[in-house]
Structures are given as C-alpha cells and as structure tokens.
Nucleic acid binder design. Structure first.
Lengths: 170, 170
DNA sequence: AGTATAAGTCAGCCTTGTTGACATTCCAAG
DNA sequence: CTTGGAATGTCAACAAGGCTGACTTATACT
C-alpha cells in the first residue's frame, strides 16, 4: 500500500487526470452491465418460487461447500434473518442440506443436494454464457483490466473475501 | 460485426479459451464490486426518505435534462407505476420539476430543481470518488478494458442507451 | 457457573418491484 | 369531426427481500 500515491489531482498527465465525464460513463456502464449480468438467471428464477437472493445463496454454497451460516452471512452482506428466510425455503425444498458441525456443534455446514446442484448449473450456465461472450468479444487484455478495476472498486473486506474464494478455486 | 469469430470454443489458443473458473471469478468480481459501487450513495440515502430507486431517477434526469417519463422508463427498466411512485415523491419534495411538453402536451419533461441538483451532487460525488480511486489504482489500460467488457455484457438495447448517453456527454 | 457465540424464529416495518384496471389528455388518421 | 391509440397518471393489491428488535436454544469457552 504505497502512501500518497493518488492524493494530488493534477499532475498534468493524462494518466492520473480523470474527468467527471469519464467517471460518469464508468458509473453508467456499471449500471447497465449489472442489469445484463443478472438478467439471464432472473429469467430462469422468475418461473420458480425463487429470486435473486436464492441464487446468491446457492452460488456461494456451491463455491464453498460446507460453509457455515455465519460465513455466508459475511459474504452476502445481509442480516441473519434475511438469509434465514431464503435458506429455510431452500432447505425445505430439498436444494440445500444443513449439517451440524463436528468440531463445533453450534455451527451448521451448508451443502447443495443433487437437486440444488442442478439449479446451480442452470443458473450459472446462463450467467457464464453471457460472461464468456463478453470476455471473448473484449479480448484478454480487456478482461484483465476489467478484473483489476472491479477489484479496486470493492470494499476492503470484500476484496479479502474475493481473494479467499479465488484461492479456493479448483 | 464479424461473423463466426467466436463460434468455436477451442482453437488451441489461450486467447479464446476461457475456463469456468475464470468466468466464475468474473461473476464474483461483478457481485462484490457492485456492492461497493452502490455502498456510498446508499449510506447517504439511508438517512433520508429516499432509496436507490430515487438515486437512479435523479442521476438520469440530471444526465439528460428534459427527458420524458417514457424515456426514463426505458432507461431504468422498471414499470410506469414503480417509477411514478418514486417520481411523485421527488416532485412533492421539490427535487424534480415536471413540465408539460410544448410540441406534445401529453409528454412530461423532467428537470432537477436547485435542491435536486444539490442531492445529485452529493450522491455522485460519493460515487465518483470511489470510481476515481479505482480508476487511478488500476491505470488507464485497465480502465479501457473495464469499459469494453462492461459494454459487451449489456443487453443490446442498453448498449444503445449507453452509447446515446455517452454522445450527449459534455 | 456464568458469559459469549452460532443459529434459528417471530413480528413488524420499509423500499421497490410486479399486475390489473381505469381515467385523462391529446395527436393524428380516416 | 370523430375515433383510435399513445403518453401519462393513479388506485389497489401483492410479493420479494432488505431491515430492526426481542427472544430461545444449544454449545463452547473461561
């Protein structure tokens, strides 16, 4: 973490000078792109009794099988009550399994069932298809830049969560 | 639009081959970054009687003053009723002004009042600060890539809306 | 034994999205 | 000039998914 690297606004260099217009375009790009990003899974979920919140839970349980409720809470950034409502329906419907911890029996470890995996596949297939198409159209250098900027835009705790998940990656 | 450029999955080149793991990281980056993206304005709005929906309306009215309700509807991608609820509170609170169209009197043209501009400034200052910091940390090539990928991720109609807004830029 | 932690639950509230039905105003085509 | 359709506004009802606050249960730690 270099100190004072970006404290001065004007160096007379285009490298560090960013107009409000450029920033505004970035803001709008985020807004429109996020709509596209969620559109395909949303369409699948619309026919079912589930929403975007269920998708997020399923995604991260699949990503980190055996994760605890508390862990998921931190990653998703919602309240226990909010997550519990979602989790309860997923468990009731047999998409998620909750197992009492061996070391600490207060904890519940979450796993996708066979059925849960099927829905996860359907949802992430749709989302990956769009991401793949965007990545291919944009090319590898653009993809690297994309990830660099997004990472810099995260809150610090989320950067850590993101990095931890990356390192867990197959 | 070159035909058949990305139809084949395997060229034996890293250029076009994208693993599910890479795509999943992109998906998670989008998720965590969008949280950061909205966090600062959300904090400001939490103290007031407004939410993210008000922010979006204010942003695009500021961006394209005199826009019609229908136009805004298309950009925001919500129903007339949903937007109307937001718009009504903004008009009642004196942040937005609605003027009957001169050519077509059915249309309402929307403008920010002095007060509306103040809130818009506060919100976009916060959001731009984060975007600026992320852009600086990432560097200009990364920023270019970021925008290329986001644009490729949008639905076609939103690409058009985005481009139209860009060309309107000061 | 007493405190802290993990999880679950109940109740109630808010924002923001949805549908459906309907009124108004006005342009434009027949 | 009339009529159909477009743009807008409004009412009502509902659902998802956030939130807070209060409380219970089980377990772990000190």
């Amino acid at each position: 973490m270099p100190d004072g690297r970006n404290t001065s606004a004007h160096h007379g260099e285009s490298l560090l000078f960013l107009t409000d217009e450029q920033l505004r375009q970035g803001i709008e790009a985020m807004f429109f792109a996020y709509r596209g990003f969620t559109a395909d899974p949303d369409r699948i979920l619309a026919d079912m009794a589930y929403g975007r919140a269920h998708h997020r839970a399923i995604h991260f349980i699949n990503r980190a099988p055996g994760t605890t409720v508390n862990n998921l809470l931190n990653i998703l950034g919602v309240t226990k009550q909010s997550l519990n409502r979602v989790l309860r329906t997923l468990i009731d419907q047999g998409l998620v399994e909750s197992k009492v911890g061996k070391i600490d029996k207060r904890e519940r470890h979450l796993f996708l069932t066979e059925e849960g995996h099927k829905l996860e596949q359907a949802l992430s297939d749709a989302q990956r298809a769009r991401m793949r198409s965007a990545f291919r159209d944009a090319g590898p250098e653009a993809v690297a830049g994309f990830r660099t900027v997004l990472e810099a835009m995260m809150d610090t705790e989320m950067q850590h969560a993101y990095t931890r998940l990356k390192e867990t990656g197959s």
